[in-house]
Each structure stands twice: as structure tokens, then as C-alpha cells.
Design a binder for these strands. Structure first.
Length: 473
RNA sequence: GGCGCUAUCGUCUAAGGGUUAGGACGAAGCCCUCUCAAGGCUUAAAUACGGGUUCGAAUCCCGUUAGCGCUACCA
């Protein structure tokens, strides 16, 4: 049974890289008909915040991808401790009574890298128990095998065969002196207990995985499969960081910029993965179908943002693609929400609203464009640009547009074809080019010189408003 | 410092011994056109460096350099 998990720690807002890790887990789970698990890794009580938790849920909710089971590590600490002591009882861990380094001190003396405190590792069980019973604080460390040429290895689904000499792995901590589990301990204990079959996570954990393999083996449990994902980095080559790069690393940046989640997911999937067929614009179900670890590459991917523009241009392109092609029934509610938030009245009637959205959406890049540029389609309060006034001030433009309005008022047929016929007739009869009235009517009806086909503009604005606006010229 | 990972157009990437090194975004130009988009066509733009192996290397090996990660009682 395939079971994967996304395990964010609530110490900041949902990060673009975390979102991608979530998505890849989700894709694999859905593709293989497995189980998607959300596990909140909140063992570092001091750094956890409620706001961060909220941000993670908000972000995931926006992405529109679901999960099947949910856990919080903070509620499972007893399990972590129990398994840590099992390792101790098996002799695979020991108490280290060395006092904690105080901040600012040199981490370790220059002479060689730190692996373990031999005197602590070799402490007899009796003395260890005695000092613990006496209340002396200690950290529980894993006893990494120290025989000559002991290798730890695993096969990564992305980075292939990995191996490391045990001598290059330090005796890492399992339990801190306050009794709380470390990340390594908690994560492995939970992965084992929740029966995670595939650990899919960022490449920053690749080196940690050797430690995790050691823990899984010491616990006698099955070692899950691993798939590490290349990291997302900033244009300056640095790891994306909240501190250094600011809000651009948050998924809310894209949400607030007016992205549709489908496009954002599409974009994120293309960072470090490709379907091998040059296809880029894809729906989630297509991506799910195509997804495999074969398509994941091993080098870090740069998110292409700049000081002037927080949005990767390719993401923007994908957004326009999705915006113009997604089923209008799915888009319309989001546009409605956008308009309502901007205080622009929209038709109650779903079908009518969707019809208008469908006509105007092909020129827009982000949801916010509807609120900023489409007022004329929904209300009578809108600005007329100077360019539009120039169109209207062309010789004969206003009078012929008024004439057109009168003719339209005489008929009930408000189809694009009929509108076009009338417009061309008026133009011809008066010896002017159709363009004068075409551009003029767009200007008259929307106050803008850019927009959909002029005839579509009539139908989008609607008969009543169109006639009013022409008559008022 | 030690260990690990990585290295193709500005960016995302394809090509896992034989290609004029392909596609996409972005840029430039042209076409189409009722505006603006879209769309179509075209152009510029890359195998980090040095050694091997081979008839032949972006591809395999070694080294160098660079970047990133881990090296915490953070995750």
C-alpha cells in the first residue's frame, strides 16, 4: 500500500518549495492510488506559531489539492520517546551528559570533525543509569557503527544509489536534554508508525537520510523508499529564504497576484520535473497521469523573479493560458469573488455572468484584471480613457454611432452577426470605413480602446447598456 | 574544513556515444487583424574548464572550478 506524506514545520508561511514538495507527493499518491498524508512537524515548540499553521492550511487549501489523513507530531511525542528508548535498550543509543554548547562558542575544536564524545559513548550502562537517576541532564545519541569500513546506503528514486561511510556520520541526537525528540527521531518514528512507504522531500534532506536509514534499521522496521527533489533557488543562486528574498517565496504572493491555482500548480511542477514530451501547459489530471520520478532532474531550479517583478514570467504565461482555457464555470466563481472584493457589482445570474467572463477573459492575465479593467462590462461607473475619447472625436464618429444605436433599438436581434451587419451598413451608407465605427463602438461602450472584438463587446455589455451609451454620445 | 549532491541558451528544460544540440518562457522582427491580446512564421541565445576512454563525447571516467546541501540538544 502506497503511503506518502507532506510534513511541513509551522515556523513560517507556506513556502513555494514546500508547496512543490506537497504537490509532488500528492501527484504520486493520486497516480498510484495511494494515501496522501499531511503531518505537521511541530516538535520545535519554541518556533511554532499559530499564524504559520494558518498560512500552511490557507496555502494548501488554495492549491485545491486534498489529503486523506492528518497528524500532528506534537501529539505523538510519547511514541517518539518510546521508540528512542527502544533504540537505547538495544544498545544502539547512549546518554551523552556533555553540557550543551552555549551560543557564540566555537561549535567544535578545529582538530578534525566532530563525531562523538568517546567517554560518553563508552560510559557503562550502570554509570549512565546512575547519573541519569541523579538528575544529570543528557542528550540521547544514536550509536553510529564505528567498525572499519561500515557503509550506510540507500537507493534514491531520483538521485540513484547513495552510500556513505559511517565514519562520516556523527552520533546524532535522538532526544534532547529537555526530553523532546529531535527532528530525526520524530520523523522516523512517525514514518514507521504511520507506515509511510515513500518519503518524498527536498534534497536538503539527502544527507540526513543516512541517519534515518540507521534509525529505521535500529528500530527493525522497514526502510521506506526515498525520493529527493532538487531545491528551488533564487536568481542570485542562494536558497530561497524568507528572510533574504521576502514574500516572493510565499505561495500567497502568487495567490494575491491573481493566479488561478491550476496555473501555479502547473508552474511548480515544471520546476525540476518534465513529462519528456515538451508539453508544458497541462491540467492537473494530465500531470498526474504523466508523473514519474524518471522525469525529475537532479539540479536545483531557479525561480525567476526580480526586484521589479516577483512573478516568474513563465508562471505568468501559464496563468494566461489557464485563465483563457479553463472551463468558464470554474473560473466564474473566482472572478465573482474578485469583483465582490473590489466592490464591483456583478449580475446575480450565473449564466449571464459566465457569458461575460468568457468574452472578456482572453485579454486578461490575472484575476485582478477583471476588477481593474472590466468595470464597464458590469456597471455604469467607469473611466473613459483619453485614447477612447480620441476615437470618439473622429469626424462623424459620434453621430454615426448614435445612428447605429437608433437602428439597433429598432430590432430585438442582438446577435454579434446582426450587430455587425448594422454597423457595416451604417458605415457603407455614409461612406466611412467600418473601422471608424468598430473602434468607436468599443470606445463608446467600454471607455477603452482595447478589448474583445467590438461585436462581442456589444453582447458582453448587453443590449440595454449598449443602447444607453450610444444614445448618450 | 569534512562529507554529499549538482553543472546544456538569461530562466525552465530535451537529447543518457553519432542530431545543423530540440522545445517553452522572455527578447527582437514579420504575418494575421476592428483595437489589444491570442495565433502563425522567423531571428538572436547554451553543453563551466582541463584531461582521458572511443572511429566518434553534452552524454562514460578522472581532475579543477563554481553553486547548493548536511555537518545543532532547528526542521
Amino acid at each position: 500500500m502506497l503511503r506518502v506524506r507532506f510534513a511541513p514545520s509551522p515556523t513560517g508561511y507556506l513556502h513555494i518549495g514546500s508547496a512543490r514538495t506537497f504537490i509532488f507527493n500528492w501527484l504520486y499518491a493520486r497516480k498510484e492510488k495511494g494515501t496522501m498524508i499531511l503531518r505537521i512537524d511541530d516538535t520545535d515548540v519554541e518556533r511554532n506559531t499559530e499564524a504559520s499553521m494558518q498560512s500552511i492550511f490557507d496555502g494548501l487549501k488554495w492549491l485545491g489539492l486534498d489529503w486523506d489523513e492528518q497528524y500532528a507530531q506534537s501529539e505523538r511525542i510519547d511514541l517518539h520517546r518510546k521508540l528512542a528508548w527502544e533504540i537505547f535498550e538495544k544498545g544502539r543509543a547512549y546518554r551523552d551528559f556533555t553540557p550543551m554548547q552555549s551560543a557564540g562558542e566555537e561549535p567544535e575544536p578545529a582538530a578534525g570533525q566532530w563525531l562523538f564524545h568517546a567517554e560518553m559513548r563508552d560510559l557503562s550502562r550502570e554509570e549512565s543509569d546512575r547519573r541519569a537517576a541523579a538528575g544529570e541532564p543528557f542528550v540521547l545519541r544514536f550509536r553510529v557503527p564505528r567498525e572499519q569500513n561500515h557503509w550506510v546506503g540507500f537507493k534514491d528514486l531520483v538521485y540513484r544509489k547513495q552510500a556513505k561511510k559511517a565514519d562520516d556520520i556523527e552520533d546524532f541526537a535522538l532526544l534532547r536534554s529537555n526530553g523532546l525528540p529531535t527532528y530525526h527521531m520524530a520523523s522516523c518514528a512517525d514514518d514507521l508508525d504511520i507506515r509511510i512507504s515513500h518519503v518524498i522531500r527536498g534534497q536538503d534532506h539527502l544527507s540526513n537520510t543516512f541517519k534515518h536509514v540507521l534509525i529505521f534499521e535500529a528500530l527493525g522496521g522497514p526502510v521506506p523508499e526515498f525520493a529527493h527533489l532538487p531545491l528551488l533557488i533564487a536568481p542570485d543562486g542562494a536558497k530561497l529564504s524568507k528572510r533574504k528574498h521576502g514574500p516572493v517565496v510565499s505561495v500567497t504572493t502568487y495567490r494575491d497576484a491573481g493566479f488561478v491555482a491550476e496555473a501555479y500548480v502547473n508552474f511548480l511542477c515544471l520546476l525540476g520535473w518534465n513529462p519528456k514530451n515538451n508539453q508544458e501547459f497541462m491540467q492537473v489530471d494530465e500531470i498526474t497521469e504523466k508523473f514519474s520520478f524518471e522525469g525529475i532532474n537532479r539540479s536545483n531550479a531557479t525561480v525567476n523573479f526580480s526586484d521589479e517583478d516577483a512573478i516568474d514570467p513563465k508562471a505568468m504565461w501559464l496563468n494566461t493560458q489557464h485563465l483563457r482555457s479553463m472551463p468558464v464555470e470554474r473560473l466564474a466563481p473566482r472572478v465573482r469573488e474578485t469583483m465582490e472584493r473590489a466592490g464591483i457589482p456583478v449580475p446575480e445570474d450565473e449564466a449571464r455572468f459566465a457569458e461575460i467572463v468568457d468574452i472578456i477573459r482572453s485579454r486578461y492575465q490575472v484575476l485582478g484584471d477583471f476588477a481593474e479593467k472590466a468595470q464597464a462590462y458590469f456597471s455604469d461607473s467607469y473611466e473613459t480613457t483619453t485614447e477612447a475619447l480620441e476615437k470618439l472625436d473622429q469626424p462623424q464618429a459620434r453621430e454615426l454611432l448614435r445612428e447605429m444605436g437608433r437602428r439597433l433599438a429598432e430590432t430585438d436581434d442582438f446577435s454579434e452577426a446582426h450587430i455587425e451587419a448594422i454597423l457595416r451598413a451604417v458605415a457603407e451608407e455614409n461612406g466611412v470605413k467600418a473601422g471608424l465605427l468598430i473602434n468607436g463602438s468599443r470606445a463608446a461602450l467600454t471607455g477603452q480602446t482595447v478589448g474583445p472584438s467590438a461585436f462581442a463587446v456589444f453582447t458582453a455589455v448587453g443590449r440595454q447598456r449598449s443602447l444607453q451609451r450610444l444614445a448618450a454620445l
